[in-house]
């Protein structure tokens, strides 16, 4: 029994690659830009054409159904209707793409902000020099209440009374995706240098996080870090 022709198999492969890149991949990692998806689809088509034209027989298997579909000879029923739909829709699609490319953009530019950009080398691997004692945590909690609570909130969840107007919003320390996946040295960098210390991918021009090195000593910052982990019920990430 004959299976689907090479052209149909190629079409299925192309559709599968598109679905995988567009819908499945974003479930695992960051979504790909459409320009990259088009590039991968183009490469897939090249691969299908190269494979399909290796011999005269495979060329016929690849191009024969396409030619018959286009010419309309020897087809009927649903395939005939599909052919008519393709022939009508193709020029309309080209027209729509042209219009879309020329029409003025009504959306603001996309912002792909990196939440946790890499810290400068001098802040990598630093250890908290202070012992994690109840006294230090208590002092850190007091400092947190005075300096951090208005934005990050009494529940350490970024829901402080001063947070509403800021975009991006203050970090939610109770979320396992924030300080729980970071080392203490990372927090030390972010608190000490503030939003303006971020690299370009962190969009420092939008961050309201103060540069606390102007007002707090290093020891005070380390104590605040202890208090944030304790208050949010999290533990710093370690390499062990």
């Amino acid at each position: 029994m004959r299976g689907p022709s090479l052209a149909v198999k190629g079409g299925i492969l192309l559709a599968a690659v598109f679905v995988a890149l567009k819908f499945v991949l974003p479930l695992l990692t960051a979504p790909l830009p459409m320009s990259l998806i088009y590039l991968y689809l183009f490469l897939t088509i090249i691969g299908i054409v190269v494979y399909g034209t290796l011999s005269g027989e495979s060329t016929e298997a690849l191009l024969g159904p396409i030619f018959r579909f286009l010419s309309g000879e020897g087809i009927g029923g649903a395939v005939k209707s599909a052919r008519l739909a393709v022939l009508v829709l193709f020029p309309l699609l080209v027209g729509w793409q042209t219009y879309g490319g020329l029409a003025p953009n009504t959306q603001p530019p996309a912002e792909s902000r990196t939440i946790h950009p890499a810290p400068p080398g001098e802040f990598v691997g630093l250890s908290n020099p202070l012992p994690n004692t109840p006294e230090n945590v208590m002092m850190g909690t007091g400092l947190y209440a005075a300096y951090c609570l208005p934005c990050h909130g009494p529940k350490f969840n970024g829901n402080g009374a001063a947070s509403d107007g800021f975009n991006p919003p203050p970090a939610n320390f109770a979320d396992p995706g924030t300080i729980a996946m970071l080392q203490e040295s990372y927090l030390f960098w972010r608190i000490k240098k503030g939003g303006v210390g971020l690299s370009v991918e962190g969009h420092p021009w939008k961050s309201a996080m103060p540069r606390w090195e102007v007002e707090l000593s290093d020891d005070q910052i380390w104590k605040i870090i202890m208090a944030e982990y304790a208050g949010a019920g999290q533990k710093p990430r370690t390499w062990e």
């Binding site: 193709f90 020029p91 309309l92 042209t98 020329l102 003025p104």
Partner: peptide, 30 residues
């Protein structure tokens, strides 16, 4: 009281040539 950065957008004047170019593309594709 302050806000972060947001956007303004002054509506561009209507450009009817984009419809013409779209139509030309349809004719060419056909």
């Amino acid at each position: 009281a302050v806000s972060s950065w947001w956007y303004i957008n002054a509506e561009p004047p209507p450009d009817y040539s984009i419809y013409l170019y779209g139509l030309i593309a349809v004719v060419l594709a056909a």
